[in-house]
Amino acid sequence: MREWRLRTPLREEDVLPLRAGDWVYLSGVVYGARDAAHQRIAEALRRGHEPPIPLRGQVIYYVGPAPAKEGWAVGPAGPTTSGRMDPFTIPLLERGLKATVGKGTRSAEVKQAMVRHRAVYLATVGGGAALLARHILRARPVAYEDLGTEAIWELEFSDFPAVVVNDVHGGDLYAEAAARYARA
């Protein structure tokens, strides 16, 4: 299992060597957003407005964190199902988004767009929310604050663990891994 330590914002040379199945420890600013925020970003772009967060070289984590307990920067903050964001993802990739982090499968269209725009999809531990919150040093809502947990969050990651599911070369861990362990 190859391991990489990456810091955001990501450059093309950061994502090119990653292969499906590699382990990644991600540090730096990552934006947290889920369903409602994606819908609003898509609406803003459709109207020709600027998105409320920078996208070039950036990373979006599909998350709706729980409230923080005293002594924690953020409450439990595990990944939500990424596929629900598929209909909103391609315009973000076109504007330079370099990675998304979540859990679960992506659509064929998003996978093709990731290859085209040289972006990767990382999965982290679904059901690992308390542990993952320990890898987030700062958290503050930066847009759409009226959405509560569904606002856009600016999160500072520190060695946040994830695995490369879709690389920029068309590698697809979910598609390949099950076959390896299946018994007919």
Partner: peptide, 10 residues
């Protein structure tokens, strides 16, 4: 026997 495995990683 599907081989999906923990977190779908096989």
């Amino acid at each position: 026997d599907t081989g999906v495995g923990p977190q779908g990683l096989g």
